[in-house]
Nucleic acid binder design. Structure first.
Lengths: 347, 347
DNA sequence: TTATGCCGGGACAAATGGCGTCCCATAGGA
DNA sequence: TCCTATGGGACGCCATTTGTCCCGGCATAA
């Protein structure tokens, strides 16, 4: 049944809208019957005519009865309402989650993908696809896209179907590499994405965990300088978010640096910058590439999965508004949990 | 899972159409890839633009890839195609059955209801609802409806939701009663229906298994005569179909009459007329009411469930065209079986 | 009894978006 | 090299949906 629902969400997502309104009408009628068409429309904030059309449908199906005193559920209607309950919960849970989160965070569009990416690798693929779907909606001819690194971003790149993309897209990395494995470096991912998008790429090809002096010298190299300029002008940014533990494991971070980070309360990493749980930038590794403040004015798509990323996401995401956020169910639930707790404390 | 599908069919029937076209595109692409939009459109007999819209959707979802050589399934597309297969089979099986039967029989609209009404009484209720749904579509202000008797017709009456019906409907029985139990007599059902439809009724209130002479006298009674006239002018007829065994069990049919019927090859009964399996009328009990030939020019809805009714349905239904036929799954499958066998013999 | 307010349903103009149908540049195969 | 089938753009049309009225009915309160 679970497979069924997800299958349906993929192949016929428009039914969600349909079910939503029909179910909410049934529910409302169930609780407030007999109730008039107009009252229904007001309380559901659905246009009168739409309510009317749906009522007509429901009446045809024999689920509601319409009399001069208002709309009532028939026996069939009561049954279908009960049955539909669990179904809609399944099918619409994410949509509700997404709506709640969108109200909570400064993000235009939030997509919640079923499952937990830490338990099922396929979930990351789904997240990748979700990102690509969003990218398809916003990308335009001649765009410059800055892509970050990380295992999730690898799946984003893989999820690109090379067909029907605008022309003259340039993909650049968000920053240099940080001593990670080649496959998950921003550079590699930018190359991969550019190929699949049918566009061009420019990469730094330089590690940026060098000595600060070396870095400032490299930055002035004409080729590097030009690319860094390009990165700054990117209209679209796609990036993952890291937790402290992850970064420590993945990168060659010296012991004392790690201790510093911990003492500063760092919980999230983005572009080599570290943030505490309130979103304050507490540390950064000297590097070249995008800075968090550069995100302003860009369309930013953030992506991360797993309950452990929830705290990091909140830290990183609250400061700057974003175009879209793609997370998995585990992360979404965790975020809701944290935020709810926060609210209780606050009240 | 089964409940799921039937739930969906009830609450959002429009998705069937959607799934149908999307699935058939996926299937066609799967087998003929790469294939062009136009070829696809021609071979599926779907308008070019519709194919295009769906392809666009499928591309957005990442299921197909579109290149200059045509449309191809992506890996995701192949997976979804496989998964969708069994789902669509479930969801659309009846639709396919219905289409096949509609091509086979002279009936405008055939509705197949899930299940076997002989095993699960709830199925009969579903059939009743289906009949009512059809009735809603065709009934008009001032109509005269002739309703037959039988247990299935009882469910039809019960399924009527008294709301939103046209005005000035008159319900009459198809014929007098035949010594059956009161509840399943055409008279009682006409009364029940009329009440729920918010209309009026006229009933015969006379058993018609009387001596032929008595009958011909009664027919000339002014009140009876008038009602019989009314019955003849009915625009809509709703009736069940009986098998020989059923009739023998239900009515007080004398032994010798039954033997006559058997020897004549009677397998079906309608309005007190008996038919052999090729649809020839072989016998009739003297009675008053509708005759089979009166059906011409009327909108007739026939309803029957159970595999045992298949033969009777075929006999009764083939001779005169009908507006609609409502059967259960068991009857539908049996009909297909009989017809297929017939075809093989014929070829 | 009468007045009032909410009820459903009919009606209809406006708008939306899907649909049908072209054309065109192009790429890949003959 | 040409030709055919490809996708995609464009555009006008039409059907359906949508937004808004209004009307008559019915129930309830005065």
């Amino acid at each position: 049944m679970d497979r069924f629902v997800s299958l349906q969400r993929k192949i016929a997502p428009e039914i969600a809208r349909l079910l939503d309104i029909r179910y909410s009408i049934l529910r409302h009628v169930h609780f407030y019957q007999p109730i008039g068409r107009r009252t229904l429309s007001q309380q559901l904030t659905v246009k009168e005519r739409a309510v009317r059309s749906e009522l007509e449908f429901l009446r045809r199906q024999g689920f509601v009865s319409v009399s001069s005193s208002g709309v009532t559920l028939t026996q069939d209607g009561e049954v279908i309402f009960q049955e539909l309950g669990q179904y809609v919960r399944e099918l619409r849970e994410f949509a509700r989650l997404e709506q709640l989160l969108e109200r909570l965070l400064p993000i235009r569009k939030i997509v919640v993908v079923a499952g937990d990416s830490r338990r099922d690798p396929a979930v990351k693929k789904d997240m990748g696809r979700a990102v690509v779907r969003i990218l398809r909606e916003i990308v335009e001819d001649g765009d410059i896209i800055a892509a970050g690194g990380g295992t999730t971003m690898v799946e984003v790149a893989k999820a690109i179907v090379p067909s029907g993309w605008p022309k003259h897209i340039t993909v650049v990395p968000t920053r240099g590499s940080l001593g990670e494995e080649v496959e998950i470096q921003a550079d590699s991912i930018a190359v991969e994405m550019a190929k699949l998008l049918g566009g061009t790429y420019r990469v730094l090809n330089v590690p940026d965990d060098l000595h600060p002096e070396t870095i400032s010298r490299i930055i002035n190299e004409p080729r590097i300088k030009e690319i860094l300029e390009l990165i700054k002008t990117a209209r679209i940014v796609i990036h993952g978010v890291g937790t402290l533990e992850e970064m420590v494991k993945r990168r060659n971070i010296p012991r004392e640096e790690m201790e510093t980070l911990e003492s500063l309360g760092a919980v999230a990493e983005m572009f080599g910058y570290y943030f505490d749980k309130d979103g304050n930038m507490v540390y950064y590794t000297p590097s070249m590439g995008i800075r968090p403040e550069d995100l302003q004015g860009k369309k930013t798509i953030s992506v991360a999965g797993g309950a452990n990323k929830a705290q990091a996401l909140l830290a990183v995401v609250k400061r700057y508004s974003r175009e879209a956020l793609v997370i998995d169910e585990a992360a979404a639930l965790k975020i809701m949990e944290i935020e709810d707790r926060g609210k209780e404390k606050w009240q």
